[in-house]
Design a protein around this nucleic acid. Structure first.
Lengths: 226, 226
DNA sequence: TGAGGCGGTATTGTCAACAATCCATCGACC
DNA sequence: GGTCGATGGATTGTTGACAATACCGCCTCA
C-alpha cells in the first residue's frame, strides 16, 4: 500500500483504517448495532477520533448512523450488489480507456509484471481465494490510478472497491474463475500497452460484466447466499 | 429540499450543511487556509461537531486537511473539471437508462411537470442564470433518484453534483444555453416515458457531453477563466 | 549576504466530564 | 388481556480544557 503524503498518522486515521478493515473483513457484522464505547475499548481509542472516523465511514456509505440510536454496519441486498457491479462496469471502463491514453510506459511494464506474479500465485496456491482476490484488487487498483482522473480514482478506490471487497470476504469467493479472470486481465493490459483506449474500455466492461453474471448465477443456483 | 429520514438535526449535520453550501456558493475561497476557530465563530459552532463535519467534507473531496496544518477548500483545475464531466457523462447515462426502466408513472409525470415549470422560468426571467442552474439540477436530481440505484444516486447527489454546482456558482454560468438544454431535457424525459432505456442513456450522455464541450470552448476562448 | 538551525506561538489533535435524547421496562388504565 | 403512557437507565451528542505538533520569525554561522 502507498502511504505517501501522510506525514503524521492521527488517531482518527487509525480509527478509520481499523474500522474500515473490520467492516471489510466481516469482523463487524452488518445489521448488528454497535455501541461507541464498545468500539473504543475494542480498538483502544477515545470517542473523539472514533466519532470522526464514524462520520467518514458513514459518508462513504459503509455504515449508517441514527442520532442517539447508535451505528450499524450497512447491509446490502443481492440486488444492490448487482447495482454496484453495474456502476463498476462503466466507471472502470472509463478508467481503462483513460489509462490506455495516459499511463506511462513504466506503469504499463509494472502492470504486466503484476500479472506475471498473479499467474505464479495462482499456479502455486491453487484455490487460495484470498490471494487471488487481492491480486484482482491490485490489478484494478493500478488501472484506476493510471487513469490520471483524480475524482474517478477517488470514487473507485474510496467507495466502490471497499464495498466489493466486503462482499468478497463475506461470500469467501474470488469470483471462482481465477484463470479466466487472469486471461481477461492480460488482454486488457495488452490493449492498454497498444494505447487502444476503446478496446481497453470494451474489454474491461465485458470483464466486470462477466464477473457480475457469475455471481448472479451462483446466487440464483443457491450456491451463494447473501 | 427533502429532509425526510432526518429526525433530530444534530450540530454536526448543521455544520456539514453550512460548510457545504458555503463551499458551493464560494463563500469559502479555494486554496485559502482557514482555521477551525474562525470557522466556529463564523458558524456559531464548537469544534467537536465542526471537526466531524470537516471529516465528512474531506472524505467527499470538497476540502483537504493536513494534520496540524489546517484545512483548505479544494481547488480544481480546468482539466479536473472536464474529468468531472466525463464521469458525469457515463454515470448519468446509466442513471437515465435505469430510470427509464424503473421510474413510476407518477414520477415521470412529475418530471414533465418540472420541465414545464422550467420553461416558464426561462421565459419569465430571461438570463436569470441562478434559477436556470437550479432547474437543471432539479432535473438531474430526479433522474438520479429515479434510477433506484442507491449507490449511484448517492455518488451523484453526494459527490459529483456538489462539485459541479460549486463551479457553476464560481463561473456564474448556467452553461449559457438554457433553451437548448431544455430541449435536450425534454427529449430525455420522452425517452424515459417511452421506457426506452437505451435511447435515454444515449441522449443523456450526449447532453452532458455537449455541456462539457460548451464549457471547454469558453475556457479556450478566454470567455471563462477558472 | 544567504542558508540553516532553533525556539516561541498559534493552531490542531485529544481527552474526559456534562447534557440531551432515545429505548426498554414497568405500571396503570381501558 | 392488551395497549398506552411514564420513568429509569444507558447511550449518544456536546462542550471546554489540555497536550502535541507544525509554522514563522530570529539568530547564528559560513
Amino acid at each position: 500500500m502507498s502511504e505517501a503524503a501522510i506525514q503524521t498518522y492521527t488517531r482518527a486515521d487509525e480509527a478509520f483504517d481499523c474500522l474500515q478493515t473490520a467492516i471489510v473483513k466481516g469482523d463487524l457484522v452488518p445489521g448488528e448495532k454497535i455501541g461507541e464505547v464498545e468500539l473504543c475499548s475494542r480498538f483502544n481509542l477515545t470517542r473523539g477520533p472514533l466519532r470522526e472516523a464514524l462520520g467518514r465511514l458513514e459518508s462513504r456509505g459503509l455504515l449508517v448512523r441514527r442520532p442517539h440510536a447508535g451505528v450499524k454496519v450497512v447491509s446490502v441486498s443481492a440486488e444492490e450488489l448487482m447495482e454496484l457491479y453495474r456502476i463498476r462496469e462503466i466507471m472502470e471502463g472509463l478508467a481503462a480507456r483513460q489509462a490506455a491514453e495516459r499511463m506511462t510506459d513504466e506503469e504499463i511494464a509494472d502492470l504486466h509484471a503484476t500479472l506475471d506474479s498473479h499467474e505464479k500465485m495462482i499456479e502455486q496456491a491453487q484455490g487460495q481465494a484470498y490471494y487471488q482476490a487481492e491480486g484482482d484488487y491490485d490489478f484494478h487498483h493500478r488501472i484506476a490510478t493510471g487513469s490520471r482522473n483524480t475524482k474517478l480514482a477517488q470514487m473507485l478506490l474510496g467507495d466502490l472497491y471497499y464495498m466489493v471487497r466486503m462482499y468478497r470476504y463475506r461470500l469467501s469467493t474470488s469470483s471462482g474463475r481465477p484463470h479466466m479472470a487472469l486471461g481477461e486481465h492480460r488482454r486488457i493490459a495488452e490493449a492498454i500497452a497498444q494505447r487502444d483506449g476503446e478496446l481497453a474500455e470494451f474489454l474491461m466492461k465485458r470483464h466486470i460484466n462477466a464477473a457480475r453474471r457469475n455471481i448472479e448465477n451462483k446466487i440464483q443456483n443457491g450456491t451463494l447466499t447473501i
